[in-house]
Nucleic acid binder design. Structure first.
Length: 488
RNA sequence: GUCCCGUUCGUCUAGUGGUCAGGACUCAGGACUUUCAUUCCUGCAACAGGGGUUCGACUCCCCUACGGGAUACCA
């Protein structure tokens, strides 16, 4: 790769869990890097020590790992770069591109309040913009606290071409001489990002639309510091169903919660990518490789997207059927273990059998947790039967007779295969002058407890003679002892 | 308030001057002489409003409305 090769970063602040919005930003960065053969980096913006925590950093790292969005280089901690930030401020000060501001916070706040009350837009008065050497010296000698402000040109226009939002123009007079270093000597975010992105040699900044208005400010910093200005791509925000911005306080769900719901990474990512990205054609389900191949920043929409969990679940189901039972093995067995249906040893000892069970079920599942709810009967006899199904499938008076006859025939059936099981069932039905469907439904309910399941005969073959006979007998008993009303 | 941005079916989106405005989710029907939670088919449903420009606007321009973001010694 040449030195112009793409370097992008995801820069979360560890003040909370990684949620859907952050995950999507990380994903877009990752896809862009992979699509262009560039590097995907991670920087933790932990300068707000009050709100940041180690635990949160770990959570974010874990979530990214689960999503398969591993950074290509060691993650950078912003807090470790403070000396660089301070140096940059010093340099700006020396070159006169920034200046010390001795106005107190109280005075500033009061001015802002007044402006708001009078419905004027607030701007810094510029009090300290042109202090003389003399005045500055005197203030310093008096030990008056100061912040440092960047000097923004009073005239002119700042413009840049956003890769999503196209041409953006902002009048310089709209940009305040914003603070880049606090009175306690710590640099402010706006300065820190610019210095960090430059030192990480970031070529493309892909981030949320909420940073769009910050961009002009940052461009002035790049210019003042003599750094090359990177390209920007702002992605629209994700909205809650009421159209409001999705936030921690308002409907945002952490990545961990989606994992717990039973999403698999590829399904989740595919769902995520539809929030603000679309490509010509009718494809909805994309593998990771598809996305890497097709992803273009130009195809990101400018409109905020409302998050739709139903579609997300459907997409996850598509991925579940797309994957092989082997690929799903670890994920599915772990939910089964958690549900107490399996234990660790069997994962190894019954690998073949479990793989077959997954294969039987997977095309009908939407979330991993469905394997527990709808896959129970793979491991244990039904302890109850769906009441609606009882009403529908067991109330025919010939049901007990049919089940009994079928059970009888299964005692000696060889081989115990799907084909043989089906032939046998049809024979039983026919010899009793009944429709095979009646028996099929009755048996399914007996064996699974549900009115729905994978193909019945394959399932019976899988469960084996002993289990099937046991469950058929159980059902007979249930029908008898619970006085299931029989009608002709 | 000011600045910036946006507005195609309920939702996610395709569409860049001439299309019956396409697809997906959801929902409703139907098919698969075995169920559906799989699969397939069918149906419902959209260019925010008003002005221009043009032979012709969802597509270009302006205005209005609505929505979002930003306006911190937070990130």
């Amino acid at each position: 790769m040449t030195e112009t090769s793409v370097r992008v970063r995801f820069a979360p602040s560890p003040t909370g869990y990684l949620h859907i919005g952050g995950a999507r930003t990380a994903l877009f960065n990752f896809l862009y890097a992979r699509n262009t053969g560039g590097k995907f980096l991670l920087r933790i913006e932990d300068t707000d020590t009050e709100r940041s925590s180690r635990a949160m950093i770990q959570q974010i790292l874990d979530s990214l790992k689960w999503l398969g969005l591993d950074p290509d280089e060691t993650p950078v901690l912003q807090s470790e770069n403070i000396h660089k930030h301070k140096e940059a401020v010093k340099k700006l000060l020396e070159e006169g591109k920034a200046y010390r501001c001795f106005c107190s916070k109280e005075v500033l706040d009061a001015e802002r309040d007044r402006a708001n009350k009078e419905n004027r837009s607030y701007r810094y008065s510029g009090q300290c913009r042109n202090l003389t050497e003399q005045q500055i010296l005197q203030n310093l000698q008096e030990n008056r606290p100061y912040t440092v402000r960047i000097r923004i040109p009073e005239e002119g226009l700042t413009r840049f071409k956003d890769m999503v939002f196209k041409n953006i123009e902002i009048q310089n007079r709209e940009i305040d001489d914003f603070i880049i270093m606090r009175s306690d000597g710590t640099p402010v975010y706006q300065l820190a990002v610019v210095v960090d992105d430059a030192s990480m040699r970031i070529t493309h900044i892909i981030r949320g639309e909420d940073h769009l208005p910050n961009t002009a400010k940052q461009i002035h910093l790049y210019l003042a510091l003599g750094y090359p200005v990177p390209r920007f791509a702002h992605v629209p925000l994700i909205l809650a169903p009421d159209g409001k911005r999705l936030s921690k306080r308002h409907g945002a769900t952490s990545v961990g919660e989606f994992k717990d719901m039973g999403f698999i990474p590829d399904g989740f990512i595919n769902g995520l990518v539809h929030l603000g990205w679309g490509v010509q054609g009718n494809q909805t389900v994309f593998t990771r490789d598809d996305l890497i191949r097709l992803f273009k920043l130009q195809d990101i929409s400018k409109k905020g997207a409302v998050f739709d969990i139903k579609k997300m679940i459907w997409i996850n189901g598509q991925h579940l059927s797309l994957k092989t039972a082997e690929e799903l093995y670890t994920a599915v067995t772990s939910v089964w273990i958690k549900a107490g249906l399996l234990d660790e040893e069997k994962i190894e000892s019954e690998k073949l059998r479990i793989t077959e069970a997954i294969d039987l079920l997977k095309s009908r599942m939407k979330l991993l947790n469905d394997f527990v709810e709808f896959g129970r009967y793979i491991f244990v006899d039904p302890v109850s039967y769906d009441p609606a199904a009882i009403e529908q499938r067991w109330t025919n008076q010939s049901v007990p007779v049919l089940i009994e006859a079928y059970a009888e025939s299964l005692k000696t059936l060889t081989p115990f295969t799907a084909e043989a099981l089906e032939d046998s069932l049809r024979n039983v039905a026919e010899s009793h002058h009944e429709n095979a469907a009646i028996l099929i439904h009755a048996v399914r309910l007996a064996v699974t407890g549900f009115s729905v399941s994978p193909g019945l005969f394959r399932l019976l073959a899988f469960l084996g003679r002993e289990t099937v006979l046991q469950r058929l007998n159980n059902s007979l008993e249930y029908i008898k002892s619970n006085n299931v009303i029989l009608r002709g």
